[in-house]
Design a protein around this nucleic acid. Structure first.
Lengths: 242, 242
DNA sequence: GAACGCTTGTGAACGATCGCACAAAGTCTG
DNA sequence: CAGACTTTGTGCGATCGTTCACAAGCGTTC
């Protein structure tokens, strides 16, 4: 899993929010936003946990890392909790993001992060394809790969997204890092090597599919051996899923 | 993280491969494939771990779950190990996959899983946009949303990908499940509710970016407090990254 | 204002994962 | 063939994450 673990020991001494919790905060944020828009003013941990698809104890422990923002016997004020989570994850900070590689994937990303005001602003779309350079996508003009460093410097971008073919990923990564980018989201199916202090998260579509396929295969095997050998209550084969 | 934990207790009794290991097997597989193509015949756990970006002990423990396929004092035969991993994760099984939602993201996915023979075959592209229906993408004709059930039945697809807007995700999910799909990869930013026995993995681009932004913010705060208060050796601020 | 019901916040048990360190088991050399 | 060297496979402790279960605290009711 792409978890860079601690980023600084310094942070641990002050905040110390577990990585697993950080990974869930955006979900809570989205669900709470939706609740707020629906006019809901207060939620219990059970209700919120239900909608977020997590255990209520886990939810409470997650929130407790931010502070005591709930009221015993009542629940959480939606608006207040939303504000606290937003503050914690740096929402509405308008992080400048540079996307390298404007294929289908880069396009999808540009549309996603560019449209909704999710706290990000696409300040650069970079591609090496001369047919793409000059086009405007999601309100941003695509610039040539040679301008990568200039674009980053111009907007002081510290977050970069790599949506190039795997063959170009490491080279692009190196240039991003050299230009001062310290957080990278990598969609290319390749392992990136970065110096200490740079945070890389990997999203690999192929890997995700293969993990699903693995489980699927396990299930099939389980059913087969179940059928030919043991023979227990047939309905229990798929029941212990948690 | 989207980990559905155990799928069946049955599997645990026979194989028992930890989820964390399963998530890394596709990476090993890809790297080994690349090594094989480069003509490398043998690797040590240290070399392979280096390229895969993991600890060598972790790599060895992962592989030991599959069996004892290495040779002490020598390392692993690339071709043999590759074969064993492929067998374990169901590579070259040609899993039929249905993709719902043919926007930029669905397009990217279709191209990705459709082109390279990664063990998957796109058997259905589904969208509700009448402008898209009838077009051919990655060699597959886009069909209307109403034909979803028919397409799944036709190819006995058990893996479905949701690349629709969040508003449509749950409805599509329900129809997939009702049609017999038991593994779902969800790209929509919404929490899906599924019955027991169905495996859902979530990939959320927004969440990934927000996790990066969080770390970025932590780093900034760390540096700031470091500057104004404590004042230790300035170069150590970003060093403990692991 | 006391008693009751509800929900948070958290200590503690549990479970999974990680990484070290080393014995076991192989190759290679002389 | 013995001894040196290399690398795997794994037992074990440390760490991280999850879940249970309950005391503490808040509102409400009588």
């Amino acid at each position: 899993m792409p978890s860079p673990a601690r980023v600084t020991d310094l942070r641990k001494s002050t905040h110390a929010i577990p990585d697993a919790t950080v990974a869930r905060l955006p979900i809570y944020h989205r669900v709470l936003t939706s609740l707020l828009e629906s006019g809901v003013e207060s939620v219990s941990s059970h209700e919120l946990a239900e909608v977020c698809g997590v255990n209520s104890a886990k939810l409470r422990k997650d929130l407790s890392h931010l502070g005591s923002y709930g009221t015993r016997g009542v629940g959480y004020r939606v608006e207040y909790l939303l504000f606290q989570i937003a503050r914690e994850i740096g929402y509405a900070q308008d992080w400048p993001v540079v996307i390298v590689g404007v294929g289908n994937l880069g396009n999808a990303l540009a549309g996603y992060a560019g449209s909704a005001d999710r706290g990000f602003r696409i300040v650069g779309l970079i591609d090496s394809d001369s047919d793409l350079v000059g086009q405007t996508i999601a309100g941003v003009e695509v610039r040539d790969l040679v301008e990568l460093e200039a674009v980053i410097a111009e907007h002081s971008a510290s977050i970069g997204v790599i949506a190039t073919p795997a063959s170009a990923a490491q080279a692009v990564c190196d240039r991003l890092v050299a230009s001062g980018v310290t957080s990278i989201l990598n969609f290319a199916p390749s392992v990136l090597t970065v110096p200490q202090g740079v945070d890389v998260r990997k999203v690999d579509l192929g890997t995700e599919l293969q993990i699903l396929a693995f489980h699927q295969q396990q299930r099939a095997e389980g059913l087969r051996t179940r059928k030919t050998s043991k023979r227990t209550s047939p309905s229990t084969a798929l029941e212990n899923i948690s």
